[in-house]
Lab assay of single mutants.
Amino acid sequence: MIFPGATVRVTNVDDTYYRFEGLVQRVSDGKAAVLFENGNWDKLVTFRLSELEAVK
C-alpha cells in the first residue's frame, strides 16, 4: 500500500522517470503525486498507482 510520505520507485519502463525514486505527496483516484528532488530542482509528477512500487 502506498501512502503520503512513502518513498516510491517508478516501475513503468516506458516512462521518462523509470527507476527514479521520490516522495509521495498525495494519493487519490488511483493516482499518486510524487515529488522528485535533485540538487537545485524539484518536480511533482502524477503516476497511476500501478506504475509505482514502495521502496523498502
Rank of each mutant, 00 (worst) to 15 (best):
T16C: 12
E37H: 14
E51C: 06
E37A: 14
E37F: 14
Y17P: 01
F3R: 12
F47Q: 01
K31E: 10
D15K: 05
G39S: 09
L23M: 09
D29C: 10
V45L: 08
N12A: 09
V45D: 02
A32W: 02
Y17V: 02
V34A: 00
A6R: 06
D42A: 15
V24W: 01
F20R: 14
R9V: 09
V8D: 00
G22A: 03
R48C: 13
A33P: 00
Y18S: 03
P4H: 05
A32P: 01
M1I: 09
V13D: 05
K56Y: 14
S50P: 05
V55L: 08
D15L: 08
V8P: 00
F3T: 10
A32M: 02
E53L: 07
S50G: 08
L44E: 10
G39M: 10
E51I: 04
I2R: 02
L52Q: 00
V24C: 06
T16M: 14
F47W: 02
E53F: 06
V34S: 03
D42H: 15
S28R: 10
N12C: 06
F36L: 09
G39T: 09
F3H: 10
F3Y: 12
Y18K: 02
T11E: 03
V55D: 02
N38I: 14
M1D: 13
F36G: 01
D29L: 07
T11M: 09
T7H: 10
E21C: 12
V27W: 02
V27C: 06
L35D: 02
D15E: 05
L49F: 09
D14Q: 12
V45S: 03
L35A: 06
D29M: 08
R19G: 15
V24K: 00
V8T: 01
T11I: 14
L44W: 07
V45T: 04
W41P: 12
E51H: 07
K56P: 14
Y17M: 08
K56G: 12
E37Q: 15
V10R: 01
Y18E: 01
W41E: 12
S50K: 05
A54Q: 09
D29R: 09
L44P: 06
T16N: 09
D29A: 09
F36T: 00
R26M: 13
E53A: 07
R48W: 15
G39H: 09
G5V: 02
F3V: 13
